[in-house]
Design a protein around this nucleic acid. Structure first.
Lengths: 249, 249
DNA sequence: ACCTTCAGGTGTACGGCGTACACCACGTCC
DNA sequence: GGACGTGGTGTACGCCGTACACCTGAAGGT
């Protein structure tokens, strides 16, 4: 039995479950936990589409009454967030044995494969008001790769946005749109906490015109980002044209 | 009668409303029509968010019972399609007095402005199973611009996809995912009908490996499209890096 | 002037959704 | 043995989209 890695809680009791079997209910069904619920939700979305993922039908598939799910996820939004986390967790992390371009390519294509395995995921990711931790992990990994190639902070930042729409769709903001705490000390603490896990994101935010300690969450200059990516594409298209590009096949 | 006679007052005598204005109901409310409904839906989405657009609240805002809306739109999906049409209709069409790159840039930025005015629109556009006519209009216009610059059909097609994610988000398929008719004659007629309005789209589909008369709707080689755009971006980023790019500001 | 027609608006009702709240069945620990 | 916490249950509420039958008033034919 695989250790339910993501679900381990501080209060995990030294669970005396006899003979290694999970405790069973009167009906003989294995006990639910958050991981089982999320996995079932992802499977249901994969096979029946995201619209089929209702608390009621998900519960039915697990042989349980709808309200039972609320013991494991706070509400449906948290369920969706958990599903996103599961999918994003499938993306390969950066490697260290490749140059930045190859590594980046691998990460983006890995992300694409993950999203193709779960076609409902892009829409769900975009519909979430704030990015989940693993989404930030991935973003940070991509930024780290760019920085490792010697790109400046602003260029890495722009490149991130340019690539973003390839990976995440129409994502415009990676930082939570919720306003940061008013109290400067509290805000600094928040930034520090983020920097511990996502150093490149914080660096990028700080270097792109928004002072991380004062305006995190203010968003960056979208228009400049957009035009950078647009001109990148236009220039590239023109270049391909000049070079007499023809389809590979 | 496109004149929306919104001026009727409750005190208006029933019977002959003056000078061709729309008839008023007993309550003095102007009669609904499809345009009024769609416009109200867009306004509601703009001001209260797309989640606030329910048939019930939309009807309430119009001073009407929910079921009254169904006399003007078949169902909620059609309402959403109509809202998309309204937004996409705001995009500036191509000009003829600019070179292809400038024209393209203008069109894309115009599309972006339209979508920024209606932030709910990208998600709705992507959620629709098939593109609406005006979406196809816009796509065709972009393709025409690329072709007018002398780009080959396949290159224009690839460029379209590369740019697509900038404008439409994660759009992967522009052709309806619904299977085309079985009967070859019927299919040929469908293609001909499409070619009349969207010649560049049909040309592009035909030139990109899928024979328009036999496999319209089969989709194109997504992976190749994706990698083309990805490498465009990667090469462009590398080039900016080599050139010592710094932010404009 | 009468009658028909019909587009537009109403009222009622149904099934599905997310979920608040009270409750109960356990296994665990003092 | 009793208190307690965890996980599952049952009921109920207020939203949602929309099917269906109905009404109403103006338009048009005769």
């Amino acid at each position: 039995m695989p250790t339910t890695g993501t679900g381990s809680r501080p209060g995990d009791p030294p669970g005396r479950t006899p003979a290694g079997t999970a405790a069973a209910t009167p009906a003989g069904r294995a006990r639910l936990n958050r991981d089982i619920v999320l996995r079932a939700a992802v499977d249901l979305a994969d096979t029946a589409g995201i619209d089929a993922v209702s608390m009621r039908s998900l519960a039915a598939g697990l042989g349980v009454v709808p309200m039972a799910l609320y013991k494991h996820v706070a509400n449906k939004d948290e369920l969706l967030d958990g599903m996103v986390e599961a999918v994003v967790g499938e993306i390969e992390p950066a490697r260290r044995d490749e140059d930045w371009k190859a590594s980046l390519r691998r990460q983006v294509l890995s992300a694409r494969r993950a999203l193709l395995r779960h076609p409902w995921a892009p829409a769900v990711i975009e519909s979430r008001p704030a990015p989940t931790p693993r989404v930030l992990d991935h973003l940070d990994s991509v930024l780290a790769t760019l920085r490792s190639g010697g790109l400046s902070v602003p260029l890495a930042h722009h490149a991130m946005h340019a690539l973003g729409s390839r990976v995440w769709g129409f994502t415009q903001e990676v930082f939570p749109s919720a306003p940061p705490p008013e109290d400067p000390a509290q805000r600094a603490q928040l930034v520090a906490a983020m920097a511990a896990r996502w150093p490149n994101i914080v660096e990028s935010a700080a270097g792109a015109g928004h002072d991380a300690t004062s305006t995190v969450g203010a968003g960056c200059d979208d228009q400049a980002e957009f035009e950078f990516a647009l001109d990148l594409l236009l220039d590239g298209i023109e270049r391909r044209h000049r070079e007499g590009w023809t389809p590979a096949s």
